[in-house]
């Protein structure tokens, strides 16, 4: 028995022992069984661990990185079967262009939504002529209080054209249509403007699918008071609702 055990072909030894020693002492039988099962058990366990490590999520997480997906499958000529059109339908769009006049994306038409436009419905004079330092003088837009930067930095005439009430103006006196108002904002807020053009700032309306339609600056920010205001949340957290209204 010892001789057999020492031989290198262990499985073979079991085979021999099973046949040559049939009906042998059950005690030795169980010893052989014990060793073989121990051997099988350990192999099985290693196999089990191997199976686990290879099956679950693979040895490398890198394959699963979205960045790898982007690298492998990015495609600049995707043919979309969907479009954001159904979700921006009804919004009259104005193109935003770069310096080469290529259309980048669209913004909603602004003038359609201005309450009183064109301005010459009321105003016959150029804005420059209407400005007065008299504190008791009449104000056309008494409800507008400029709360944008400081009084020293901005006046009405910083953004509105002094020659033609229907236009905004840039620092170089170039007149800008109300539908291109973002150009006025971009003069100071160039960082925000870059983010907006890229897509990190501002809000895309309708859908994620092309064509892209983004809100322009004044769709979210009141140009006369651009900061967001504090208010109550529109809904409370689950736990809070249950605390306030226990059922």
């Amino acid at each position: 028995m010892d001789k057999i055990k020492n031989s290198s072909s262990y499985r073979h030894s079991l085979f021999i022992s099973r046949h040559s020693r049939a009906g042998g002492n059950p005690l030795e039988w169980s010893t052989v069984f014990g060793q073989v099962t121990a051997y099988a058990g350990i192999t099985g366990f290693i196999g089990f661990v191997l199976l686990l490590t290879t099956s679950c999520s693979g040895p490398s997480h890198n394959d699963h990185s979205p960045l790898v997906q982007i690298e492998k499958h990015s495609n600049s000529n995707i043919e979309y079967s969907v479009s954001s059109d159904p979700f921006t339908y009804g919004i009259e769009k104005v193109a935003v262009t770069n310096s080469e006049k290529d259309t980048l994306f669209f913004i909603p038409n602004r003038v359609n939504h201005l309450v009183s436009f064109p301005c010459n419905n009321c105003h016959t004079q150029a804005l420059g002529n209407m400005v007065s330092d008299d504190p008791s003088g009449k104000k056309a837009h008494w409800n507008i209080k400029l709360n944008h930067a400081t009084d020293e930095a901005l006046t009405c005439l910083t953004c509105h054209s002094s020659n033609d009430v229907e236009y905004l103006r840039l620092n170089n006196e170039k007149e800008i249509h109300f539908n291109q108002s973002q150009k006025v904002c971009a003069q100071c807020h160039s960082t925000q403007s870059n983010d907006w053009v890229g897509g990190a700032h501002g809000k895309i309306i309708g859908g994620w699918a092309p064509p892209r339609v983004s809100n322009t600056c004044v769709n979210c920010h009141d140009p006369h008071s651009p900061a967001f205001e504090t208010r109550w949340p529109s809904r409370l957290n689950t736990v809070k609702i249950q605390e306030l209204d226990p059922k």
Binding site: Q69, S74, N75, G199, K203, I204, W208, A209, F228
Partner: peptide, 16 residues
């Protein structure tokens, strides 16, 4: 209301 949320197609190099 703040535009803090951005959604799109990662495989489209022109996406925001």
């Amino acid at each position: 209301p703040t535009g803090a949320r951005i959604f799109g197609n990662l495989l489209d190099p022109n996406s925001t």
